[in-house]
Amino acid sequence: MFEIAVAIILGCCALGAGTAMVAGIGPGIGEGNAVAKACEAIGRQPESKGDVTTTMLMGCAIAETTGLYALVIAILLIFVAPNMFIEILKSAIG
């Protein structure tokens, strides 16, 4: 019985981590748009390449934040949560 409970905990943690990383789609699209626009801007005004590049990198890093929240949750679910839940289960069984 205990083994089945542990298996369910591990499986659900893995499923949750995988589902959380769906949030990676958003930053991907957003950063792609940002880089595309930056390329257009550089094509129009090649002399402003330095400014455009630094601004683009900055914007990309900020757009990445939502993806990183999901990543942090996924890492917590894989490496931290199972041990915690198993401890709780053990203390509940006694």
Partner: peptide, 15 residues
């Protein structure tokens, strides 16, 4: 968000 942005980037790279 500032803390998570910095730490998440470095940690994801090492992972």
């Amino acid at each position: 968000s500032m803390a998570f942005r910095h730490y998440g980037n470095v940690l994801s790279g090492s992972v």
